[in-house]
Write a protein that binds this DNA or RNA. Structure first.
Length: 182
DNA sequence: CTCGGGATGCGT
DNA sequence: CGCATCCCGAGG
């Protein structure tokens, strides 16, 4: 496994989103690595993207989105769930939401959906703002990855975002059983 | 300060 | 389709 470097995250958001498919998300909890293969993501393109939290500008909540690439933006939703994003580009308010994992090591079976992903990986507000170049929380390229086809679809749950809701910014691995809402 | 609603998941 | 459950961001 090869940990992704800063340069990877600084790429254009749509490209980074697609490149994250097949990568391994790793979180060491109690000295045991929880590992999942990323199989579904969504790109959020910055302040002009009405579906993105950064469309509200820089606030206490979106501060991390406007920070350096390669950090985790974790937020609470509906009062009880968490969702994790990877900040991209750099100080641009852009990010990629991680929506589903295929369990690889030390994970429960239910990892399909952004909140289940966080629950399985034990990710919550404590990980907000963490640098993904750390020793215990990072994303890595596996030594070998099976080839796959990427499917593009509209993002989930952003109907309020007008024309932005129609953009094909959700990407997933075709045929993978862990993709949410098949 | 109040208040409306949300990048979800689960049960009915 | 309703609900849990909390905090963000807007407005007074």
């Amino acid at each position: 496994m090869n940990k992704l470097d800063r340069n990877f995250y600084e790429g254009k958001t749509e490209a980074v989103a697609q490149a994250l498919l097949g990568m391994y998300l790793v979180h060491h909890v109690d000295a045991r690595p929880r590992i999942g293969r990323i199989v579904e993501v969504e790109a959020y393109l910055g302040p002009q993207d009405l579906a993105a939290h950064s469309s509200k500008g820089v606030t206490a909540r979106t501060r991390v989105m406007f920070g350096p690439a390669g950090h985790a933006y974790v937020y609470q939703i509906y009062g009880l769930h968490y969702c994790m994003n990877v900040v991209t580009e750099g100080a641009t308010g852009t990010a990629v939401l991680l929506r589903a994992l295929e369990p690889v090591e030390n994970l429960p079976e239910r990892t399909q959906g952004p909140a289940l992903l966080c629950k399985a990986m034990q990710i919550d507000r404590r990980q907000n703002g963490m640098d993904l170049l750390s020793e215990t929380f990072y994303i890595a390229r596996p030594d070998e990855s099976p080839s796959f086809t990427i499917v593009r679809r509209p993002r989930i749950g952003v109907d309020y975002a007008g024309q932005w809701a129609r953009r094909l910014l959700r990407f997933y691995v075709r045929g993978n059983p862990f993709v949410s809402r098949a």
